[in-house]
């Protein structure tokens, strides 16, 4: 057995709840490799919300908080503020992060707080049985868009960057090495990082979004829709999704660093109150 499984997965929690062919396994694999290659396991905690992607960390042999829908980033911010020296990784999904939890994404990115958010975008509400999500492509006939989805999809990377995220990348599960590298860069980056992963849900999105239920066929389909970018260009070609490392900016001060420096200044000026 792969020694990483011994080290990183709580075997008495297995089997994983994921459906056969789900992309979450590849993302889990990339995340474990990233954490292991950086050697940061003991200094890293994972936080997730609700949805299929949020079930990635609960099986990890690490400190993990599996929280409520949409609020993983809010929990992670409290955890980070209480232990600024630790790494916090958030696993979230397109519904969790961009619908119910959108406000927390905006404000955490604006604070530039050092949290690494892995946003698993499978274009659908998988766990509840295949309803339209904020990233479902227009025209998709889902359980809640029987005449075809008519909301324009939300671009998670674009929102995070315009709100102030200082590291941002997007890959697909067909790019496991690039994904692992991006997660490593996200963990090492001192600021708010968002890594979006386009992933396949053969059971739900396969039926209503891709008309292709074979996992490998779905990965091919997702990959074929992407177009590699070296940096962020807001006007993308019609029907194409940019992938790549869009932003890595070290010029903005990180949030807990701001607090630490302020406190150092204050301590110079004033004695403790208790």
């Amino acid at each position: 057995m792969n020694p990483l499984i011994e080290r990183y997965i709580k075997k008495d929690s297995l089997p994983y709840i994921f459906c056969a062919g789900c992309g979450n396994g590849i993302i889990l694999n990339a995340a474990i490799h990233a954490i292991d290659e950086l050697g940061v396991k003991e200094d890293t905690a994972c936080v997730s919300g609700i949805g299929c992607s949020s079930w990635i960390p609960p099986y990890l042999n690490m400190d993990v908080m599996h929280t409520i829908h949409g609020r993983a980033i809010a929990f992670a911010e409290g955890l980070k503020l209480s232990r600024p020296e630790k790494n916090i990784i958030v696993f979230t999904g397109d519904g969790d992060c961009l619908a119910i939890g959108g406000n927390h994404l905006l404000h955490a990115a604006n604070r530039n707080i050092n949290i690494t958010v892995i946003l698993v975008n499978n274009f659908i509400y998988g766990m509840t049985g295949g309803q339209k999500s904020p990233t479902t492509p227009p025209g998709s006939k889902t359980k809640t868009s029987p005449f075809g989805a008519f909301d324009d999809p939300i671009d998670g990377c674009g929102i995070a960057m315009s709100a102030g995220a200082t590291y941002c990348a997007r890959w697909t599960v067909a790019h496991p090495n690039q994904l692992k590298k991006a997660i490593k860069e996200g963990i090492m980056h001192n600021g708010f990082s968002l890594i979006e992963v386009l992933s396949q849900c053969p059971v739900q999105a396969g039926k209503s979004v891709f008309q292709e239920r074979d996992p490998w066929g779905m990965m091919e389909a997702i990959k074929s829709q992407t177009i590699p970018y070296k940096s962020w260009i807001p006007d993308k070609p019609a029907g194409k999704i940019p992938i790549g490392t869009f932003k890595e900016d070290n010029s903005r001060q990180e949030y807990t660093d701001k607090i630490r420096k302020l406190k150092e200044q204050l301590r110079g000026m004033q004695k403790e109150t208790v």
């Binding site: 936080v47 809010a74 409290g78 955890l79 209480s82 927390h104």
Partner: peptide, 15 residues
Amino acid sequence: ISAMCAVIGARWGGK
């Protein structure tokens, strides 16, 4: 909501 979640996160951080 965020405030309530953050205090829970911070408590698990040990504060």
